[in-house]
Design a protein around this nucleic acid. Sequence first.
DNA 1: CGAACAATACCGCAAAAGGGTTAGCCGTGG
DNA 2: CCACGGCTAACCCTTTTGCGGTATTGTTCG
Lengths: 210, 210
Amino acid sequence: MIVTAPIRVLCVDDHRLVREGLALILAREGDIEVVGAAATGEEALELFCRTRPDVTLMDLQLGTTSGVDAIRAIRREDPGARVIVVTMYHGDEDIYRAMQAGAATYVVKDTLADDLLRVVREVYSGLRPVSDDVRETLRQRALQPTLTSREIEVLGLIAQGLRNREVGVTLRISEETVRVHVKNVFHKLDVTDRTEAVRVAVRRGIIHLS
Amino acid sequence: MIVTAPIRVLCVDDHRLVREGLALILAREGDIEVVGAAATGEEALELFCRTRPDVTLMDLQLGTTSGVDAIRAIRREDPGARVIVVTMYHGDEDIYRAMQAGAATYVVKDTLADDLLRVVREVYSGLRPVSDDVRETLRQRALQPTLTSREIEVLGLIAQGLRNREVGVTLRISEETVRVHVKNVFHKLDVTDRTEAVRVAVRRGIIHLS
DNA sequence: CGAACAATACCGCAAAAGGGTTAGCCGTGG
DNA sequence: CCACGGCTAACCCTTTTGCGGTATTGTTCG
């Protein structure tokens, strides 16, 4: 009896229960083998190098570190690496950054197990099965103004409760310049005050609070 | 051969993959049977009434509805209901409200599958196995000032980006009164501006953004 | 090269927020 | 009954924000 080699999968999620649950969903299948599970970006990279999986399932929220960084690290190590993002985030910026970092596709955690399995097999066979939702979200994002890295930096500090002056000190620029950045952020996000800006930015995945 | 009746478990989580993963972890055990899975508070209550499980696993983030409300609804239906909270939240206020609502215990999603199984069995046998972490968090909370319901209401509107005046209009009170509430919230949360207040409140689980 | 854009910086004005204080009303509980 | 805490409201003063300009520098891109 001839058995084809199984699809070797690496699971990355910072919650043990989710990790183990995902592993069980995958391991139930005859053609899939879970070769590792990681909780952080560093662990993920290390396990990736050691096990060289065919497909990596990656959460974006990895405690303190970012899943996007982990994707970049893995794809720098192996430009052909196939990474499927599995996350609860659905902000357009989350999706955009993940795809930009080289993810093969993007799946939210509210997906049927069978659909996930299908995606794993499709990605393994070289496809990039992007769902209509994801495509539509990316299309929407393309229509909206893009924040510059400096603006995101300022916004992140604003979100931490810093005043314009304090942001200026932190970034070693004048308070006046900070005010300009803040104004531009407001216009781009279509809001009129900082609290609302933070709210919108978090919802869109431009910044994250924790 | 005598087989004791299995522990009948209901899983409530708004993410299909997590729900199915949890169900697999549980169903692997010989003495546990998963009798249902729900995604929302309403579904949970309905399935609870129909299946009368021994133990309910409940996430706190149920899309729009709150897991705490679901716990209350279930315990109003059956005051002896045993509900285990399984969530990623770890803010002191989340834990407090869940326990207050009648949860048997509180487990974060970064738990070993075996530990979850142990907790399920302990809760089934009538124990309330509260972890040291949870106990400590509740102790910490007891030391901190409590926000009144009005203050939480104001804070929630602030978090949505409303100005003091707009909050006043919404709650039908004067802007001056809103300012008083905001000031009191600042003192209690030990912050000096609204953006930071929102940040701290979200981290502590006093309010949630989505 | 010229256009566009990002980042820097400044000015002025009106609005809003932050901070302290006082005070009346009401319900709960010692 | 009286004290206490919560909700309400107002006043004053200072600081910060939000919003409109203008302008210089450097870089990138067609």
